[in-house]
Amino acid sequence: MSDKLEFSNNLFTIKDLYLPGMVSIRTHLFDKKFQKIIKDILKINVPNKLEFTFNKNLYLAWMSPNELLLFSKNLNEILKLITIIEDTLKGIESLVLDVSSSRTVFSIKGSLWRELLAKGTPINLCPNKFTSKSFRRTRLGQVSTAFWMVKTDQVYIVCGRSFKEFFFKWLCNAANEKSIIKFF
């Protein structure tokens, strides 16, 4: 596997969360039976559209009306959960897949993260629009991504594994201390 990527300056620390765990759960999210199963196993509610829910290190995010992404920094936690979820969902039309190797997750720490992301995405990142509950799939520059706030001064960003190094360079460039606007 390629090297662990890290960058920091006075404003931002950008880190590749090395080998995180991710599961894609495809089913009809509005199904009450499904919602109960998720609540029972994960102790988390199925999130509303464009949002995520969480329990400690476990995040559950809305990808589309029939897809959730379950994420943990801890790959082993995820690997254990996959079989449980898959087995419990047997009777429900669904597809549960380990996608831990498909994607990578970067953490960006720094209170000005909105400034950094606004260099690449056309979505509205104003605090009243992109809130602590928000999970958005959009582009950053030319790369397809999804991101959410884990703390007021920290975001996690998911991108395809093969784009990892390119995207890391993009992030570092956008983190340029000399190009901060203080718009938000």
């Binding site: 390629s2 030319q142 093969s162 390119f166 360079k169 460039n173």
Partner: peptide, 8 residues
């Protein structure tokens, strides 16, 4: 190097 995404 940021001209176009490169997949590895």
């Amino acid at each position: 190097e940021l001209f176009k995404p490169i997949r590895k």
